[in-house]
Write a protein that binds this DNA or RNA. Structure first.
Length: 425
DNA sequence: TCTGGGGTCCTAGGACCC
DNA sequence: TCTGGGGTCCTAGGACCC
């Protein structure tokens, strides 16, 4: 049977998560900040209306936010991750084929049939998510993922459609595409927009009709696929199972600049430990480790330093102490005194399933550490991250993140459950 | 003072081989 | 003056996404 795609997209997701536990904020301007309280990464409609751009550094709007009574939150991924899982559960229950595309989006594959009403199905989905989880969503429907994305924008923006817009076999197709700026098309970013603009291509309809050879030459096959998708020819299939990871990164900007090697060591040990846990969660082992250090990229270029080092591991491993030792060796050779470091990170690559590669006959094996790693993960799973951790990750954490406006882990920590108070009068 | 983090895919170019 | 050609593999960098 022929299929169409539906995109289910949570509205202003992080803001909606915060509002769930602070309903008084439902009509107030709200923003959520990135790690380190750096940039604005989610805005309520009221905050958008006040002109706060996506990605704006917080320090630039701090005074304005205070004047306008904008409610500000540090990001709280424990909360957002849990609510995301609940939204995805509701979708699963509807028994459609689905792809979890990101923390706040999922694609569904819907059958095309004359005696079946897609719009009322989508409306029902939307209502269930509102009722069971409390998060508002928009749903766009189209013959390709790219068109479903465009339909989703219409669903979100135009109140008259009540959160659901169907672009599959729609007579409005070209009108909608004409009104969609090219940089709002999925896969067209800043650079492609500039290139297209120089060719006189400014909206999605013009892109749909663009010359294929030119697109292939200047936007590569990536661009050619987008053009086909705009023409209703689906090139991007529904990925029902998540693909195995090819790399795992743990990196952070520091709450304040760090100069001492000892502080960097703490950070590097902490990032390596975290990366190792992620590796084990996915039953993977790494064949190589990359460590990088960076000073503030917006600061004075004369005193800037960015460097990284990749080293192969003697054999694929997910052993925390092996990864820490390797990362610290990199740090030793990368570190230069006198710089104000702002960021560091560990990247694990050459990933393979656990136990997949043959062990070396001569290299030291980490096999005997497996029970220790398993025990460590179990305890931290049960009692919370970092209940047991490697020494030297530091108690004072000079390098730790700023999170001045964080809400509670309402749904994933017994200590932080919301309290409901009632009294009988 | 203060500018996120974690990913993917594609291409060009260098190293190396016969 | 003239300095092969074709193939593979790897990596760095660019572009994009949420």
């Amino acid at each position: 049977m022929k299929k169409v795609f539906a995109l289910v997209d949570c509205n202003n997701f992080y803001v909606s998560c915060e509002r769930l536990f602070r309903p008084a904020l439902n009509i107030q301007p709200v923003v959520v900040l990135s790690n380190n309280d750096g940039c604005v990464i989610a805005r309520s409609n009221e905050a958008k209306a006040l002109g706060i751009p996506m990605g704006e550094p917080y320090f630039k709007i701090k005074a304005f936010a205070r004047r306008q009574n904008i409610h500000v939150f540090s990001s709280n991924y424990a909360l957002y991750g849990d609510l995301s899982a609940r939204v995805m559960d509701v979708l699963h229950q509807m028994e459609a084929e689905m792809e979890v595309y990101s923390i706040d989006e999922a694609f569904l594959s819907l059958p095309v049939s004359r005696n079946w009403n897609r719009i009322s199905y989508a409306a029902e989905l939307r209502e269930r998510i509102r009722k069971y989880v409390g998060i508002p969503v928009s749903i766009g429907i189209g013959p390709s993922k790219t068109l479903a994305k465009i339909a989703g924008r219409v669903a979100k923006k135009e109140g008259r459609y009540q959160g659901v817009f169907d672009l599959a076999d729609s007579s409005q197709m070209d009108d909608v595409l004409r009104q969609t700026e090219v940089n709002d098309v999925w896969g067209i970013g800043k650079r492609f927009t500039e290139k297209l603009g120089r060719q006189g291509i400014h909206n999605a309809l013009e892109l749909k009709r663009a010359n294929d050879a030119w697109i292939r030459k200047h936007l590569t096959v990536v661009g050619a696929r987008i053009v086909m998708e705009l023409n209703g020819i689906s090139c991007l299939p529904l990925e029902k199972a998540p693909a195995a990871k090819k790399s795992i990164v743990t990196s952070r900007s520091f709450g304040q600049p760090v100069t001492a090697l000892s502080d960097l060591r703490e950070a590097v040990i902490s990032f390596s430990s975290r990366a190792a846990v992620k590796l084990r969660e996915q039953n993977l082992e790494a064949g190589a480790l990359h460590l990088f250090l960076a000073t503030n990229r917006f600061g004075d270029q004369a005193v800037s330093y960015f460097n990284g080092q990749t080293v192969p591991l003697p054999h694929p491993t997910s052993d925390t102490s092996m990864l820490i030792t390797t990362a610290l060796r990199c740090l030793q050779s990368l570190y230069k005194a006198g710089y104000r470091y702002q960021k560091a990170g560990v990247l694990l690559s050459a990933l393979s399933p656990q136990g997949y590669k043959q062990q070396s006959l001569f290299a030291p094996t980490t096999e005997e550490n497996k029970p220790l790693m398993t025990a460590l993960d179990r305890i931290n799973d049960k009692w919370g991250q970092d209940t047991i951790r490697y020494g030297l990750t530091g108690a004072h954490k000079l390098w730790g993140m700023r999170q001045s406006y964080k809400s509670s882990a309402y749904t994933s920590s017994w200590q932080e459950l919301p309290l409901v108070k009632a009294s009988l009068v």
